[in-house]
């Protein structure tokens, strides 16, 4: 018994080391931009590099638009499926999982092939490529968004709540925005943070469609020729991801409190 707990701790420790050692090493390395002493020079350079911040801002915008478009597409769809076509759920679940199975590189080549010429010449303009990128991300993040919304709708009795609202005189708009969506708020917020984190770190699709305008490719490029600054960036994006994760947790916990037992 005691021996077992000792071994448990050993494995946990090993796991933590495996996870944190590279991070610590990277952090240490990022402080060595000056030869003679530890310094925050790399961080200073990173902060002064406007290209990085422009790319971050761009990716945040793309992320928010992805979230918006995804919600706009998925909330009414999943609502309708729950209300009138529950038998379609397994099929929709299958389709929503396809992005896990199909590599992003396949997705991006498909997108470029179809949308680089007539009748959809989207790759010729900035607006066109932005749209293409957002559309690609909507597909890429579909599994997370679908699951979150589906779980949110399963937790409330969508059909009966809809009928209750209808019998009280409500039309579809009122039902969707005053009854259904408010009860999905925490599920949607959780998915939104996750999508933002994914979009901020995504490299494959971004590099092919918009190149260095997006955050992912910029991190990669900095890493190619400025090692210290790149390490600083890695630490920074880790922090960013963790903050988003903490927010998801916070939101999820609040959801438990406000929805309570069914």
């Amino acid at each position: 018994m005691r021996k077992a707990t000792l071994w448990n701790w050993f494995w946990i420790l090993l796991g933590l080391l495996y996870f944190f050692l590279p991070l610590l090493a990277t952090f240490h390395f990022s402080l060595r931009a000056r030869k003679e002493a530890l310094s925050l020079l790399a961080y200073q350079q990173m902060i002064e590099d406007t290209r990085i911040w422009q790319a971050l801002l761009y990716s945040i915008q793309i992320g928010l638009l992805t979230i918006g478009l995804g919600l706009l597409l998925m909330v009414p769809t999943v609502y309708w499926v729950h209300l009138r076509a529950r038998y379609l759920r397994p099929m929709i679940e299958f389709f929503s999982l396809l992005p896990f199975v199909i590599p992003a590189i396949v997705l991006v080549f498909g997108l470029i092939r179809i949308y680089s010429g007539d009748p959809f010449p989207l790759t010729n303009t900035y607006a066109g490529t932005d749209f293409l990128l957002i559309a690609g991300y909507v597909v890429l993040t579909l599994p997370y968004l679908y699951r979150a919304i589906d779980a949110g709708m399963t937790a409330i009795d969508v059909a009966t709540l809809t009928e209750a609202a209808q019998s009280l005189g409500a039309g579809w708009g009122t039902i969707l925005f005053r009854v259904i969506v408010p009860n999905l708020r925490s599920a949607m917020l959780g998915a939104a943070f996750l999508i933002l984190a994914i979009v901020l770190g995504e490299f494959t699709i971004a590099s092919f469609i918009v190149g260095l305008r997006a955050f992912g490719p910029v991190i990669w490029q900095v890493g190619q020729n400025r090692a210290y600054e790149a390490s600083a960036l890695v630490i920074f994006s880790f922090l960013l991801t963790w903050i988003l994760m903490a927010l998801i947790n916070f939101v999820a916990r609040r959801a438990v409190v406000t929805s309570g037992p069914r």
Partner: peptide
């Protein structure tokens, strides 16, 4: 349509709006 009938309904599962 049900929302134009002005008929009240009470369900077995209460169906209160949780929010």
């Amino acid at each position: 349509p049900p929302n134009r009938r002005n008929i009240g309904m009470v369900f077995q599962s209460y169906a209160l709006f949780p929010n």
